[in-house]
Write a protein that binds this DNA or RNA. Structure first.
Lengths: 235, 235
DNA sequence: TCTTATATATCTTATATAAGAGTTATTAAT
DNA sequence: ATTAATAACTCTTATATAAGATATATAAGA
């Protein structure tokens, strides 16, 4: 038998998937939800506790519980773990290198769990800090979920892709898995990042997931780690 | 005013620091602790909830709550995030390269929060997988906290250092911070890892903490990421 | 040997009260 | 009459306790 609070959690998640409550907005109060779902406030609380621990919801005492977003000032670039050696929170600029539609490779269609050879949007961009290139991103997303996306939109919104996904396509990325390696810059990445060939780069391969663990973005980031590092916390 | 469950949490932590309950052992039941601390079982529960979320305690329904350890089969190499490309959980071998006592540098004494120029133990080792070198570790720990540690002990215990810290010195590492970069192998690391000079390596600089966020180990790991990757989960 | 009982642990839910945050109404001073 | 301070009210989440459910292990009984 499934615990009651798990059921409540699923119902709340379902409402979030439906878009019943939008990112940044407050969801109904614990007591209201308790009435709707016909359980006690504490049971709703336990469900929200978990969603909050997963950063899907955000609690604010005395105010309410809010739908997490990639839009807020303080949690912008939520998935970016790169930090400057000097500990600064710095602003990055965005430079689109290429943008195209293509057929998914076999591997990619498996990763994104889409039909083989269905259309995907593929783009490259360079993130710069202080005019200097820092990250080369290759991003691949299923065209079906991002109809109407143009190169102009990416250039225009200088912020994170995730912010755009959310605002313009109703796609909320909740979590991501990354595989990190050290590689040498090849000709292309070296020229785009303005470093010598064979410079060591941090290769960060990321798959991002929306609700119900549905993968919706594959991304490869190549980072120069001379003045920056990727931070990781273990426990 | 501090919440009651926070006080309880601190009392439990204090008992753990004192070594009242050893790693792997069960702590008293929630009801027992509730009696001792003169609070309700639910309050103890909330305290344990948090300690359990921090991987300091481990719950087992119907059995009890246990002190987390680096000793158990399944959570061995708890802090090792390196995975083979083929997803195998593999066994690593351990090869000591050097072992010495030296004076702490200024930087290191700050990192470990010890008196400048106090004695530290410094060691290098190579972790191999399938006879092939995979990681070169440089480890520095304050001698004071690890009196009696010899090279032989490290060679003998083939397992993780953390296991030895725990068993032989009563030092339990709870969490760690890592800074990850891509570098090129220099002469020394290249020869120890049996790769060409300038091979790209993943540089993982780690500081490990015991109770109350006390740093007790600095470590630099250089990893070959041809057939392995460092995994990271974001949310 | 298999089943049932029992003891004891955590887990789940429910209820009640506290505390934080904002709004509105009241009061006092100017 | 206007303004500013403050008190009261109402919403929220946070905390505390208690009781019943469920899981696990062991011992007793058929």
């Amino acid at each position: 038998m499934q615990p009651l609070y798990e059921k409540v959690k699923k119902k709340i998640t379902a409402s979030l998937v439906q878009g019943e409550w939008s990112p940044g907005e407050a969801i109904p109060s614990e007591t209201e939800l308790a009435n709707v779902y016909e359980v006690s406030q504490g049971t709703v609380r336990k469900a929200i506790d978990e969603l909050s621990a997963e950063s899907i919801l955000i609690r604010r005492q005395g105010k309410g519980t809010y739908v997490a977003t990639h839009n807020e000032e303080n949690i912008q670039l939520r998935f970016l773990r790169l930090t400057s050696n000097f500990g600064l929170k710095e602003k990055l600029d965005n430079q689109l290198v290429s943008f195209s539609k293509e057929k998914a490779t076999n591997k990619l269609s498996k990763v994104l769990n889409i039909n083989p050879a269905s259309t995907i949007i593929s783009l490259k961009r360079v993130l710069t800090f202080n005019e200097k290139p820092l990250i080369l991103d290759v991003i691949k997303i299923p065209a079906q979920s991002f109809r109407g996306l143009t190169a102009e939109m990416i250039v225009e919104k200088k912020g994170s892709m995730y912010r755009m996904y959310e605002t313009d396509f109703g796609v909320r990325m909740l979590r991501a898995d990354e595989k990190i390696r050290a590689i040498n810059a090849n000709f292309e990445s070296a020229s785009l990042l303005n470093v010598k060939e064979n410079t060591p780069l941090l290769s960060v391969e990321r798959i991002s997931y929306t609700y119900e663990n549905k993968p919706l973005e594959w991304r490869l980031g190549l980072c120069i780690t001379d003045n920056h590092y990727y931070r990781s916390e273990l426990d």
